[in-house]
Structure formats: C-alpha cells, structure tokens
Design a protein around this nucleic acid. Structure first.
Length: 538
RNA sequence: CGGGGUGUGGCGCAGCCUGGUAGCGCACCUGCUUUGGGAGCAGGUGGUCGGAGGUUCGAAUCCUCUCACCCCGACCA
C-alpha cells in the first residue's frame, strides 16, 4: 500500500555533494545508501556529548510578540525578524526575501528530486489562459470564478477574449495534452511545473494565503482509472514523506469530503498538519481528476483494442504555504526554527574576539572548524560569520532568528582548549565539543535535532487529538482549546455544513485506514463507517 | 459586500478636542569606550503630516469629498 507509514529513515541531510556515479533509479527512493555514508559516528570517533545547559530560559527576542500573547502577531513577527518576506505594494502579494526564498529553493530541490525519481519531468505552461478554457469544466469554473484575476487590455487595446491569470493549470495543460496524446503508447504523461499562480483572495496572510504564490503542480494522464488512482496516491505519499522526513512535520493523510474537494476532481486527497495553535493546515493535495478534464478538453487516445477513449488525469500541488506551515510547526518565541534537512544554513560559525590579538588566534581556528565541517556537509550550507561590525550578541540573535539549527561559537577560550561551543537552536542547549571529530559530532547532533523536532511535533499533535463521540463535547473542544477531533459523521454535506456553521470546524481528512472503526454520527446518531478528523483550519 | 479602526521621517507613536508652520523612541550616520546573549556616551542625517478641495491672515489640527491599509465575518493551497 503506497500510503503505509514508514519509519523515519536515517539522516540524509541531502546537502553533501554526491558522486555522479550514484544515479538513482526512477521509481525507487534512495534509502539508506547515501545516509549510511555519514549516518552515525562510529563509537571510536564520535565523542559523547555531555548533556548541556541551556543558554537562557526566558523569551529574549524583543522584536517578537510571544505566542501566548497573540499568535497571529507572533507569526508576522517571526517572518519579519527572520527577514523571510515582506508585504508588496499590491494588496495580498508578498515579496519573498532571500532568506525566505532560500527555504523555498531547498523545498524545491528536494521535492523536484522526489518527483524525478518517480519518473516525472518538468515543463512550463503560460501564465495567461483564455477565459473560455476555464468555463469548459462546470465545477472548475464555478470553483475558481470568484478568485480570478482577468486581463482585459493589452497593447493599449481591449482584448477580444479576456485572459485569466492562471489560478491553476488543468485547463491549458488539458488543451495541450489533447494535442500530444494520440495513442496508449503516448501514456502515461507525467509532467510537473514550477510556477506562480494567482487567486484573488479576500483575506491574505504571508505565505499561508497570498494572492500570488509559488507552487508546483503536477499533471499526469493515464490509460486507466486504476493507474490514475495509483498515481494520485503515489504523489500523496511523496508529500507525506517530504513533510515528515524533510520538514519534520507529522501529517495526516486522507481524503477530502465532496465539499472540500478540488473543483472538477473526482477525489481529492491531502496531507494535513497541526500548527502550534492547534489549527489544521492543508499542506499538499493530490487529485484524481477522473475523466472530467479529458472530456472537457477532448483528451482521447486509441487504446490497445483500437478503441477511442478518454484519458484519466491527475494533478497534485504544494506551495509556498508550506513555509508558513514549517514556521508554525517548529518556531518559538525567539523566532524561526528550521529542521536541519531543510535549513539553507545548517551550521553557522560565530568567531568571538575582543581585539586584534584574539582575532588573529580565533579566525584561523574558525577556518579549521569550517574545513572540518566541510568534510561532511555541503560547504554552501555552512556559514562563517565574519562580520566584525556587529557585537557578538547581535550576531547570535541574528542567526537565532534566521532559524539556523546549530550555532558554533569559537572564542579565545575554545581555541585554548582545541574545542568549540555548540548551541542548538531548538533546545538552546550549549555544550563544548573538541575540534577533533567535530564533523561526526555535528552530524549526529543535526540528526538528533531533526528527529527531536519531528517527535516533539508528533507528541504535540497526539496530545491535542481526541476521540469524541458526543457533539456537546465536540463543541466544547472547538470553542475552547481546539485540536483534532476524531469523530463519527453520517456522511452528509448538510451535517458537515451545520457543524461548520456552529463550530467553524471542518472535516480535514477522511483517513485511509484499512480497518475503520464503525460507529454512530455524533450529530444525528446515524450509522457511520469510520471516524473522520475535524478541526478548525487555516 | 456588512461591522470596527488607522493613515504624521525606514519602523512604532505623540501632537488634533482648545489652528500659529512638527516632536519622541527605535533604526540610520560619525567619533570614542565596549564586545562569550540584543552596549554606553557625545554629535548628526532624515518628514511638511495618505490625496484633493474648502474655511482662515495662518491648517497635521476645523469642514467636505476621496484613496489606501488593518482587524472581524462570508470564499480559499
């Protein structure tokens, strides 16, 4: 079963340049092989790390509102302090600053690789789509009409046909697939594109919901319904792995209800995460489009029996919204916290000195530290902070708020001892480690940080997930602390709508359990085949 | 679109009621002293008060119109 949970594999920071000889075979996830190169330090080399003391216990960031005080403001403050993004002059649009974009680039390169390993290729389709295309699929146009941006003029003249700025690309791509696909020999078509899309949102929030956002949209066409469903679930599983293994974000996988599904889809699946305020965030979606778009765009092929048939298509996407989700999963009152595997800067070395004499001693040592780490990490992901116009404390806070998982302080005292100070971003634990074997020590620590972040998030979700059978209790949960509620539902859109109206909670996923537990709808008492997961969502 | 609010140096604000030609904190620049968790002192740069019109000798301040943004609600990756 493609959606079966797999254990978190050994650390693959994915940052060390790899030899060309190791070429992954499409369709097979590289597992273990690469990680084994620098997985755990052998006992003889890895120095035991003493339990450290934390550098401080209180919230120290004076430019960030604590979560407990105002969660929304905290979110905006973390973005601002970390210099991730800024508001653009056009309402609802954002400027992704270099630090934020670097995170996106990391996400892109890791996901892109996972797509290519499963046989997909990249292409690019235009940003402008004839308005009439959207109208060809009834549900699709109904779903997207309210949020379309439309170009009516160009070259100083009124256009004969308005052009919409793509909100998603099923239509143009369907149009092209109709021309490219003639025979079953042309199938499957497995194309992905990285691009921007625009959806005119009424209420926007940086990363989570902006009018323009960056994303990836995969579009595939298949011979049979079974193949399309298989592809849909395969990509869902890739999103699950990406979130859990790279972003350290535990996610629930499942199906969307008809009210929540993609306009035009047969079925929509998604991965859903819990944020620190216990609200749900849909992080990636995978749609089985059936033959809806094939019929609308006349995508037909001659099958093996020489009969003309419509293809079965899928589409799947994930966006810059994941940056918001990543932030709300791990960050704290001091600012951004990034998991090592996705962090653009994994380790920062901060040299400390008071005068030229100390500088002369410390800098070469810091360079040695960098060289040592360069043996195990991609040098691009190691930063040596040579700024001497900033005070030490200011540099510390800068990197704290950039979310760098590990800071290495190198001062005169350390040089004397042939050691460095390692400071974890997540726990703030500070510990001394000798320069000898520092590469392995660092890798082990990064691995630990990665798994700790994931485990912490999973424990949080678990602590805030409740099995609920009584609607009164359900309302109390949603009106009070919030969280995920596993409850029974009779399957009707009316009851779903009533629950939403009364509690703001929606059905986030219908889990893909193989052995569902039947019961009775918490609202109507009617039979229910399985529990579904409710939550208030972003 | 309905309800509430705000527009004054890069950011956050005061001044408006009781008109007299703009001030504070942070940031920024210079210098000295500092530097293992957001330094101190001294000096300095920068705005004509969202926009338009009106009242007045005189408007950030009063009046009219207008624009933008933010928060709450309905829609959404």
């Amino acid at each position: 079963m493609p959606w079966r949970r797999k254990p978190l594999p050994a650390l693959d920071l994915g940052t060390r340049p790899r030899g060309r000889s190791r070429r992954p075979v499409p369709g097979t996830a590289r597992r273990g092989t690469v990680a084994a190169d620098f997985r755990r330090p052998r006992a003889s080399r890895g120095r035991p790390i003493q339990p450290g003391r934390t550098t401080h216990s209180e919230h120290m960031a004076k430019n960030i509102t604590p979560r407990a005080e105002n969660y929304n403001q905290w979110y905006l403050d973390v973005i601002s302090a970390g210099q991730l993004a800024d508001h653009a002059p056009v309402k609802g649009c954002m400027v992704i600053r270099p630090t934020g974009f670097a995170i996106w680039e990391q996400m892109q390169s890791r996901l892109d690789r996972m797509f290519k390993e499963t046989g997909h290729v990249n292409a690019y389709f235009p940003v402008l789509i004839p308005e009439s295309f959207l109208k060809r699929e009834a549900e699709h146009v109904e779903g997207f009409a309210p949020e379309l941006a439309v170009v009516t003029h160009a070259g100083g003249k009124l256009l004969e046909e308005p052009l919409v700025v793509r909100p998603t690309s099923e239509t143009v791509i369907g149009h092209m697939y109709a021309q490219w696909i003639q025979s079953y020999r042309d199938l499957p078509v497995l194309i992905n594109q990285w691009c921007n899309v625009m959806r005119w949102e009424l209420r926007t929030r940086l990363f989570l919901r902006t009018s323009e956002f960056l994303w990836q949209e995969g579009h595939t066409a298949h011979e049979t319904a079974e193949e399309a469903e298989e592809e849909t679930l395969r990509m869902l599983e890739i999103y699950r792995r990406f979130h859990e293994e790279l972003l350290a974000m535990p996610v629930l996988m499942g199906r969307k209800t008809d009210t929540e599904k993609f306009p035009g889809a047969l079925r929509t699946y998604c991965v859903e995460a819990m944020m620190q305020d216990r609200k749900a965030l849909q992080a990636g979606t995978s749609h089985n489009l059936g033959q809806n778009f094939a019929r609308a765009f006349d995508i037909q092929f001659l099958d093996r029996g020489n009969e003309r048939r419509h293809v079965h298509t899928t589409s799947w996407g994930s966006s810059t919204r994941m940056i918001g989700g990543l932030l709300m999963t791990h960050s704290d009152d001091d600012g951004l916290v990034l998991p090592p595997r996705i962090a653009p800067v994994q380790v920062v070395i901060v040299p400390l000195y008071k005068n030229d004499a100390e500088r002369a001693a410390v800098m070469p040592f810091a360079e040695r530290v960098r060289a040592e780490l360069g043996g195990v990490l991609d040098p691009l992901h190691i930063r040596l902070d040579t700024r001497d116009d900033l005070r030490a404390a200011e540099r510390f806070f800068y990197w704290v708020q950039q979310g760098v998982p590990l800071r290495i302080e190198v001062g005169p005292r350390d040089v004397g001892q042939g050691a460095v100070m390692l400071v974890r971003r997540d726990t703030r634990e500070k510990q001394s480690a000798p320069l000898a074997g520092l590469g392995q020590t660092t890798l082990a620590l990064l691995e630990r940080i990665q798994t700790d972040l994931f485990e912490r998030a999973r424990a949080f979700r678990q602590a805030n997930t409740h099995r609920i059978d009584d609607y009164g209790e359900f309302r109390e949960l949603m009106e009070g602390p919030g969280g995920f509620a596993e409850a029974h539902w009779n399957g009707s859109a009316q009851v779903e709508a009533r629950i939403k109206a009364e509690t703001k909670a929606t059905i986030r996923v219908i889990p893909l359990d193989e052995d569902p537990e039947p019961g009775r709808c918490m609202v109507t008492g009617e039979p229910s085949p399985r529990r579904v997961v409710f939550a208030v969502a972003y």
